[in-house]
């Protein structure tokens, strides 16, 4: 049931990008010599694209996101894990939110967001044994196999790409995140001697391109 939705999301992201890319060209053709600032993106148009790996959200994970005041990011992601690593190939749909309060410029073209804090919720489809109706009584396994949620912290470094002919500036950012999930966190909370934070940590590496 999730698959058509995921496909639609994946297809929609490049389409909105193409629609925006087409707009400045047609303006230029309308005999304007001076490059005009690009039209403000509509509220529903994503502000950035992301590509990442790990974090429990997929081996290859792509998505699009929105930004608020350059501090709050909300991304919708679709991840894929090949069968080789997990019995049956998994599709993971996730929503991730990150808040990065500070921006430190390193040079006119490079800046760092030293701290991002956030969280995610993910839905996994493709598990072999997620529990079928009637297979178990309600309290047999009290946790969900499909839905995971967890906190994350990270940092981001950004680079200003050369401006487009329209004067529109874009940034390419690289980020890492250290996170965990609800089940790991519970295990750690109850076993502070045998488990360390390093045991439950999960790493994400990603790229983000502003549109």
């Amino acid at each position: 049931m999730l698959k058509p939705l995921l496909c639609a999301l994946l297809l929609a992201a490049p389409l909105t990008l193409a629609a925006r890319a087409a707009a400045p060209d047609s303006l230029a053709a309308a005999a304007s010599e001076v490059p005009r600032p690009p039209a403000r993106p509509r509220w529903y148009q994503p502000r950035h694209l992301v590509l990442q790996t790990g974090g429990g959200l997929g081996m290859i994970t792509a998505g699009a996101g929105y930004s608020l005041r350059d501090r709050l990011d909300a991304d919708v992601l679709v991840g894929y894990v090949p069968q080789k690593y997990t019995d049956k190939a998994l599709t993971i749909l996730s929503l991730k939110i990150r808040y990065s309060p500070w921006t430190l410029p390193l040079s006119p073209k490079v800046w760092v967001k030293p701290l991002s804090v956030g969280g995610y919720i993910s839905f996994t489809s493709g598990l072999r044994n997620p529990g079928q109706p009637g297979q178990y009584s309600d309290d047999y396994y009290w946790f969900s196999n499909r839905v995971r949620t967890g906190p994350l912290v990270g940092s981001q470094v950004s680079y200003a790409l050369p401006a487009r002919a329209t004067g529109h500036r874009r940034n390419l950012s690289g980020y890492y995140e250290l996170g965990t999930n609800d089940l790991y966190l519970l295990s750690y909370a109850q076993n502070r001697r045998a488990l360390s934070l390093a045991d439950i940590a999960v790493l994400t590496l990603g790229l983000k391109l502003d549109l």
Binding site: T53, G55, G56, Y85, T86, T124, N181, A201, L203
Partner: peptide, 14 residues
Amino acid sequence: SACEMLEFSPNDHR
């Protein structure tokens, strides 16, 4: 260790 921490899913069995 970074590679080990790059977990694709909690159901990732590597």
